[in-house]
Design a protein around this nucleic acid. Structure first.
Length: 109
DNA sequence: CGTCTGACGATGC
DNA sequence: GGCATCGCCAGAC
């Protein structure tokens, strides 16, 4: 293993369709609560096949655009997975932020 | 080994 | 609420 690199990739790959995760959240999951920048670096080095479009800023904003070619492309992928957006192409985080604890459909809280 | 960078996060104004 | 600054971690040079 290469350390946090593989940890981050595995965590991102574990994000289910229709859900998104924030950089800081992923960083915390791999043991680096304040290493959001490290997640950024990992995604830059991410291999093909990784659902990096499901990784967004906590504010619900997508990547700057030049990352995927355009935000429209990333937005389309998320829309196709069932992720809804606000009026500004920002994700409704409260609705779609991925939570590993989200395995209780009977307990929405 | 020192410095810069990178798709962020939190805080301050 | 939007912008600026600092902080954060790991890799590349």
């Amino acid at each position: 293993m290469d350390g946090v690199f593989s940890e981050i990739l595995k965590t991102v790959a574990a994000i289910p369709a229709g859900k998104v995760a924030t950089y800081g959240q992923i960083a915390a999951m791999v043991g680096r609560p304040r290493a959001a920048r490290t997640v950024v670096w990992a995604l830059h080095s991410s291999p093909p096949g990784l659902p990096c479009h499901r990784v967004v800023a906590k504010t619900g904003k997508l990547a700057p655009g030049h990352v995927f070619g355009s935000q429209d492309w990333q937005r389309s992928l998320l829309l196709a997975e069932g992720v809804s957006f606000r009026c500004d192409a920002t994700i409704d985080m409260e609705q779609h932020q991925w939570q590993p604890e989200d395995l209780d459909p009977d307990c929405p809280l």
